[in-house]
Design a protein around this nucleic acid. Sequence first.
DNA 1: ACAGGATAAGATATAATAGTCTTATATCTT
DNA 2: AAGATATAAGACTATTATATCTTATCCTGT
Lengths: 145, 145
Amino acid sequence: MKILSRACNYGIRALIYMVANNGGQENTSIGEISEELDISFHFLTKTFQELNRANLLKSSRGPNGGVALTRPAADISMMEIILVIEGDDFFDTCLLGLPDCGNGAPCPIHEVWKDKKDKMRLEFETTSLADLGVRVSEDKMRITI
Amino acid sequence: MKILSRACNYGIRALIYMVANNGGQENTSIGEISEELDISFHFLTKTFQELNRANLLKSSRGPNGGVALTRPAADISMMEIILVIEGDDFFDTCLLGLPDCGNGAPCPIHEVWKDKKDKMRLEFETTSLADLGVRVSEDKMRITI
DNA sequence: ACAGGATAAGATATAATAGTCTTATATCTT
DNA sequence: AAGATATAAGACTATTATATCTTATCCTGT
Ligand code: SF4
Ligand code: SF4
């Protein structure tokens, strides 16, 4: 059961790292992140570029360059990140993978699935990057692979 | 957000069709199903073979051949179908896609995700093929593409 | 100005998934 | 026994997702 693409997975984990590391407001180099989290550097870079274009973070080149959040981590929800990386239609899909049948001709399990989806969306909307980062810092848990 | 593979999607929809059509205990030809649901015949056949080997259904060749359920539709849960097609580890994965970290070194959103997963599993376990088929027959909804 | 450190961008490679085609085999009807 | 009908199985192709490699561009400190 794969919910998120690899790119999204990496993106979220990378952002959590930044927040846990320096709050996310200061530059962190992609190289450092990719090394710490053991993520392909170039792949991660591409993902960051998307977040960049979506103005979730800003990047700067050269020495002391890197990426940093444009807003406080507490203001950024998991939802935003997911939508940027997976696309705006992320929650429009259905359990059976049929597009656009939510209203017109729903299948038998539509209601059940819709309910689960709504709850998950709410969770994503109300969980901020700061939430995630803080819990990591407290080291209830580490991010490992 | 793709939860189920195409093969699983097809498999479930095909079984629902069988149940809605003749209760699932009588032979239905794969050709008919694939045509009605507009699913690739050969691809569907392959999926059926898996369900076959798992003894969820039996097949017979020749005229009047086809596939039929081995047990009453009410006794077959969505869960069984999913596990056969997607593999037994279907529910072992996590939101971030990291394998085997549920116990050892869980990530920040582990609890939240586990909860959602458990509820979905329960849903799949308690929803039988008969449930799905009946709702289709009542035509609260059609299965369309 | 220059050198080195950093991201940007695009081309290429690999792997996983999905779909198609061909041949074999079993079963029913006549 | 023959022919039609149906699944079984495996080879092949196409598409998408993931990963890597190469080159370009920008920024900073000296
Ligand atoms: S009816 Fe709902 S759950 Fe069913 S296939 Fe359509 S969108 Fe998905
Ligand atoms: S801790 Fe839980 S949710 Fe997080 S990556 Fe591991 S299994 Fe997934």
